[in-house]
């Protein structure tokens, strides 16, 4: 790469990284706690680029090949183009269908298993995350969900005639390690794939599989409302 263009690559990349950090865009790709790191990284990249320009101008002559970056440095502009031109959304139905259903993994500690589940709120309609719903459906021996009307928010990961699947993605660090949380919905017509919906319904314990992971828990829906995508699509 030409020595004279290095600063431009650094400044461009820095601006885009800072932009992602400063706006809600970062919620599509990384955990919210990465936000300050992205903003600082963007700022440092811009400063490094400007310092490079300043040093080159002050030195007043060409670097003679020495210190020139390898050609691969151009690749740093690829994420810039991807974010600028394509602005990819948070992971959706394509990934949810192919990912491991993480809610089928019991990672409660011995103490948590001993203590059991806390009592649910006495609201008429319980607002739960998909992870909370599945955890109780799979592991709660007191069957606290039984007969309760719950409200779940997710996107449609699989549409179908008889039943369809509601999903949320969950990540540890970034979208590369994302896993899915799936709920089977029956009783209401299936919206289009990737449509965000609010679903009210009652857990169907008979259908909940004895072997977690072989089939997601089932929700008999009474009401399905299409909603705009939430600020943070991940759970």
């Amino acid at each position: 790469m030409r020595r004279q263009l290095q600063w431009l690559v650094l400044v461009t990349l820095g601006c885009v990284v800072a932009h992602v950090g400063l706006t809600d865009l970062h919620l599509r790709y990384v955990q919210p706690f990465m936000r300050p790191a992205l903003i600082v990284t963007g700022a440092v990249l811009v400063l490094l680029g400007l310092a490079d320009l300043l040093m080159a101008l002050r030195r007043g002559h060409h670097e003679q090949g020495h210190g020139a970056a390898p050609r691969t440095t151009w690749l740093l502009l690829l994420p810039v183009l991807c974010i600028g031109a394509l602005t990819p959304p948070a992971l959706g139905s394509y990934s949810a269908q192919r990912a491991v259903d993480v809610s089928a993994v019991d990672n409660r500690s011995d103490e948590e298993i001993e203590a059991g589940f806390e009592a649910l709120a006495q609201d008429d309609v319980l607002e739960l995350t998909l992870a909370e719903f599945n955890e109780r459906a799979y592991w709660d021996e007191s069957k606290s969900l039984e007969g309760r009307t719950v409200r779940l928010v997710g996107f449609v990961s699989r549409s179908g005639e008889q039943d369809w699947e509601l999903a949320r993605m969950m990540m540890q660090c970034c979208a590369a390690d994302a896993a899915a949380i799936l709920v089977t919905v029956t009783g209401q017509a299936s919206p289009a794939r990737d449509q965000w919906v609010e679903v009210e319904g009652v857990w169907q314990p008979d259908d909940a599989s004895i072997d977690p992971g072989s089939q997601p828990p089932t929700l008999a829906a009474t009401r399905v409302t299409a909603i705009p995508a939430p600020r943070n699509g991940y759970e």
């Binding site: 790709y29 990384v30 990465m34 992205l38 994420p79 394509y94 979208a175």
Partner: peptide, 22 residues
């Protein structure tokens, strides 16, 4: 959808790694 998932994952890995590289 596959291409879109690729771009999302690619951008995510890059954004997640850059602060650590820095």
């Amino acid at each position: 959808p596959a291409a879109q998932a690729w771009v999302t994952v690619f951008v995510s890995i890059t954004l997640q790694s850059l602060p650590f590289l820095l």
